[in-house]
Structure formats: C-alpha cells, structure tokens
Computed example of a mutant assay.
Amino acid sequence: DGEPQGTAGQPMLNVFQRESVTNVCCVVTRYFGGVLLGAGGLTRAYTKGAKDALDAVGISTMSLWTLWDVPCTYPLFERVKLEITACGGVVRDTAYGADIRLRAAFPAGGAEQFVPRLTELSAGGLAMEAAGEEFLPGPRESANGT
C-alpha cells in the first residue's frame, strides 16, 4: 500500500537475531502511521513492538527432559508434588485410583535428585518408573537481562 520497503519484517527479525532467539513467530499490528511516520518512524515502531513483546514473554530454552511415572498414596500426595518441584521437575499429569500415579518431567539430573527423597518419604515403599523423554521449555529468563 505504498509503504517503504524494509521497514517492518527485517527490523523485527533483527531484534530476535540480536537476542539469539530462534523458532518464534512475532506479529505486530500497527493501527496508525504508514507514510505519515516515514521510513524511520515505521522502523522504530515495528522494532519497538517486537522488543516489547520479547521483553514481556522472556526467553525459554528447549531441552530434553525425562518422564517418570511416580506412584503415590493419598496421604503423601501434596508432599510428593512439593518434592518434585523442589528437584526442578513438573507434574505433567495425575491419575487418581486406589492410589495416585503422577507423570513427572525432570530436567537433566532432577530425577536422580528426586529418587532419594521419594525413598525417604515412603520409607522405601515407592519407586518411580521411566516413561520416556520429551523436549520441553526450561524456565523463562528475562529478555532484557534482569
């Protein structure tokens, strides 16, 4: 529609390249400006939109996590969930029956740290079973270094 070429896509891409961010999609919707802003104004508007979006969501790195089925009794349920979290894991699913079975995901080293805690909590009565691996995002980090 007569807008200057190279004022939106490339400046937005540069924001992500400077932060070494890959495999993302960013959409910036501009309601005002066009030729009234000029090429410099458009470039600044799109760059700021992309940077504001990145700062708002942060950056997360994908890594390989191990999945485990963790049996649990009802009295130990809340404590087991707390211990999973304390070891850097997350509860992905919970199945309720006569007892509870949690599907937990742990980053590298987290499962090894959790095993003795589960043994201690259950007095050796519970043992978790390997259930595979999955690529998952790690904790979010601020894009602006804070």
Rank of each mutant, 00 (worst) to 15 (best):
A98Y: 02
C72I: 14
K48G: 06
L67S: 09
V70Q: 05
A86F: 12
V21K: 03
S63M: 04
F77M: 13
A95E: 15
V91F: 04
W65I: 04
P75A: 07
T66H: 03
G58F: 05
Y46L: 03
S60Q: 11
L13W: 06
F106H: 15
F77V: 00
R18V: 02
D93P: 06
G41R: 02
W68V: 11
C26F: 05
G89T: 07
V21A: 10
F32L: 15
V90C: 08
I100H: 10
A50H: 11
N23T: 08
Q10S: 08
L76E: 04
Q17F: 06
G89R: 08
W65C: 09
G58K: 00
L36T: 09
V24C: 01
G40Q: 14
P11N: 06
A104C: 11
A105C: 02
N14S: 05
A95I: 12
T94K: 13
I100G: 03
L42G: 10
L67Q: 11
T66A: 10
V24R: 01
L36F: 09
A50G: 13
K81R: 08
G97R: 12
A39S: 01
D52M: 09
L54S: 07
L37M: 15
P11F: 09
Y74F: 15
V24F: 03
G89M: 01
A98G: 06
G34D: 02
V35N: 00
A8G: 05
G88K: 14
A95K: 13
L37N: 08
N23L: 08
G33Q: 07
A86H: 11
F106Q: 09
A45D: 12
L13K: 12
V24T: 03
P71M: 11
D1H: 00
G2P: 12
R30W: 02
N14H: 03
D55L: 02
T47F: 05
